[in-house]
């Protein structure tokens, strides 16, 4: 609160201290929405520039962390909205690695988390590409609830949406994500046919 007061009065070092304290969290949060470092940095930078402008509206009733999280959520959502939504992802758009990943994670094997970092990167990239075919609101709710295990109430606090909106959005987003993945699995040629 003291830091916020000083920063509001124009103390640049106080604002720098705020950035030092909270930038790891802002980066972690923005990383859930963008899979490229440059986009995450852009989002984080926008968050802090907005935070500086809106310091006057921070009354210190809640935590600064929560306040910054809300700004981060809205900033990321706006950036997702401004980004061009990708058309439907088809199996022909998949890389060889992504197809292999899908092959090896079909059925019951999906329950087991694989440990290879390279395979994780492939999965993260594929997830990003599938998510980009969904609306920003779908991406947000799926990432926060299904990816991060946040509760509906936590998402309500982060987004400012109503509880029912979060629930309905999550339900529909899961359906759309499942359908997008199912399409990839359904139209995927067998491994023997590809080789």
């Amino acid at each position: 609160m003291e830091l916020a007061r000083l920063a509001r009065a124009g103390d640049e070092s106080a604002f720098e201290e705020i950035m030092r304290r909270y930038s790891p969290r802002v980066f972690r949060f923005a990383s859930r929405f963008f899979n490229q470092r440059s986009l995450v940095e852009e989002a984080a930078q926008e968050v802090f520039l907005k935070a500086f402008t809106e310091l006057g509206s921070f009354e210190g009733r809640g935590s600064m962390e929560g306040w910054l999280t809300r700004i981060t959520t809205h900033t990321c959502l706006n950036l997702l909205r401004s980004a061009k939504r990708r058309p439907e992802l088809t199996v022909s758009d998949l890389t060889e690695n992504e197809t292999t990943w899908l092959d090896s994670n079909m059925g019951e094997a999906a329950a087991e988390r694989h440990k290879s970092s390279e395979r994780s990167l492939v999965a993260a990239d594929l997830a990003g590409r599938v998510l980009q075919t969904l609306s920003p609101d779908d991406q947000l709710v799926l990432t926060l609830i299904d990816g991060e295990d946040n509760s509906v109430k936590e998402v309500v606090e982060m987004t400012g949406w109503s509880e029912s909106k979060v629930k309905v959005q999550a339900f529909r987003a899961r359906r759309r994500m499942r359908e997008a993945v199912e399409k990839l699995l359904g139209h995927k040629p067998s491994a023997a046919a590809r080789t």
Binding site: R37, A110, R178
Partner: peptide, 19 residues
Amino acid sequence: AAASISSLLLKERTAEVFE
């Protein structure tokens, strides 16, 4: 199967963190 893969993809996506 698609739902389980979706869940796995989302977990992998959120596991990636930039500093």
